[in-house]
Simulated scan of single mutants.
Amino acid sequence: MTGGIVLDLRACNGVLVDPELRQVSTGPGTVLGELDTATAAHGLAVPVGVISGTGVAGLCLGGGFGWLTRAHGLTVDNLIAAQMITPDGETVRADARTNPELLWGLRGGGGNFGVMTSFTFSAHAMPQSVLAGNLIYRAPHWSGALHALREWSSELPDAMTVIATVLVPPLEWELGTEAILAVGFAWADPDHAAGTACVERFTQLAPPDVHDVAATSWPQWQSSMDDVFPKGVRAYWKNTGIDSLDDDTIALLVEKATELTWPGTAFDLHVMGGAMGRVAQEATAFPDRSSAFWINIYGFWKDQVQDAHHRDFIRGFHRDMSAVAQGGEYLNFSSVDAPAASGFDALAVYGEEKYARLAALKRRYDPHNELRLNHNIKVTG
């Protein structure tokens, strides 16, 4: 393939919910907001990402972190069937009985094997209103909040998923123009009293400067961060896993946070574990589940003149993290220019055993590597 094929799958966005089986089927053009709205109408939810405009297909094939990660696992952990068309035109279904090895590979192996035409997910009961919110900290309290997060996260119940973000807030938030630390959370259980008690254990350790917590609908909470990720902009991402929030790691995070003085660049600290951490490493192609935390460093901007400055900051931050990080790479948090520059090392990311299985699938379904403008699994002999 010397040129390329551009596929607009946006019209393939139908969502079919089976509330009795707690299963959801959808096309490759569906975005998360559509999936959330359809499932919430039945008191259900599929674990997906945190931005309503994200596409289900790309998110799922890479893994799928979000506000239900600790409660119900990654998006790929809830993928029970899929259908795709290979580059040579073969239609292939994958589920537990039909092509189970392909289903394994689709659970974290990226868009390496075919053009996806449908996904079927397990769904989970969700309360009509979700206890969720952000605990906001100004710069003088960042270190204390991160130390408190270390203590609090060590005994979190599965129902509590936490993502701490440092950013210059959007104007719509009316929180000023200086960087803040927002400890965001979602409590995936109808017992709001228990969730409130869980949050209070943290706020007793680190009283927030702003307390923004409320019961809200699942689709509303799922779109609450949309302002942070605008469409039609330039972007760059880096990420890595972290063993623990030791004093050196916290000091480095605070140092980097103080350097963030412009909007659009931020970093998220995901508290991992829970249901996601109990899935066996070999059960999916997803690279690594062992980290206690995951950091995603990213930036969005409009002017090409800002490319060098913003990319250099993100790369430098990621490089500095290597002194305290466990390593690892999550595909959906990886810079999009890495594959094009042949900078993606699939063997290093997946390890020898998973890479060998993924390479075998690549030989079976895309032997000529037609699908290569991605986090590429190279065809081997």
Rank of each mutant, 00 (worst) to 15 (best):
D95I: 14
P230D: 04
E370Q: 08
I242M: 07
G351S: 05
V183K: 02
I242T: 02
A280I: 05
G299M: 06
S52M: 09
V56S: 01
A323D: 10
L358P: 08
T196S: 06
Q204I: 12
A96Q: 13
L269E: 11
P170E: 03
A280G: 14
H310L: 14
V115Q: 04
V305N: 06
G195N: 03
D227N: 05
H270I: 15
V92S: 04
W237G: 00
H42V: 01
R10T: 15
T39H: 02
E259G: 03
T75F: 03
G4F: 07
P169Q: 11
S154F: 06
S52I: 13
Q23D: 00
L371R: 03
A71P: 10
T30K: 00
T380W: 02
P87E: 09
P157M: 12
R319V: 08
R97P: 00
S217T: 15
D337T: 13
D189C: 11
T86G: 00
Q222T: 14
D8T: 08
E151Y: 07
E151L: 15
V379P: 08
G89N: 09
G327D: 00
I51Y: 07
I297M: 03
K354L: 02
V349R: 00
T240Y: 04
V17E: 01
V271A: 05
D307F: 10
P169M: 14
G328A: 03
H147F: 09
G3S: 11
Y355V: 07
A359L: 08
N78S: 04
G73A: 01
T54W: 00
A360M: 10
W67C: 04
G273N: 05
L103N: 01
P47T: 03
F293G: 05
V48E: 01
Q204C: 09
L175P: 08
F119N: 03
Y298P: 00
E200A: 14
D303W: 07
P263L: 09
E34I: 10
F313C: 01
A139C: 11
V162I: 15
G351D: 01
G133R: 06
V228R: 02
G109R: 03
R319G: 06
Y298R: 04
S129C: 04
Q128L: 13
Q304H: 10
V210Y: 08
F185H: 06
L253N: 09
V213M: 06
P339V: 12
G89V: 14
V279C: 01
E90S: 14
R107F: 00
S154K: 03
Y236I: 14
N134S: 12
F121A: 08
D18N: 15
G73V: 01
N13F: 01
R93Q: 11
Y355I: 04
L156P: 06
A235V: 12
A206F: 07
F293C: 07
G108R: 05
V166L: 12
S25L: 07
T240I: 11
A308R: 15
G144S: 10
R93K: 12
A159Y: 04
F119G: 06
A145V: 14
G55R: 00
R97D: 13
T284G: 06
Q128R: 15
L156K: 01
V228W: 00
L32Y: 07
G328H: 10
A194Q: 13
S290Q: 10
G4S: 13
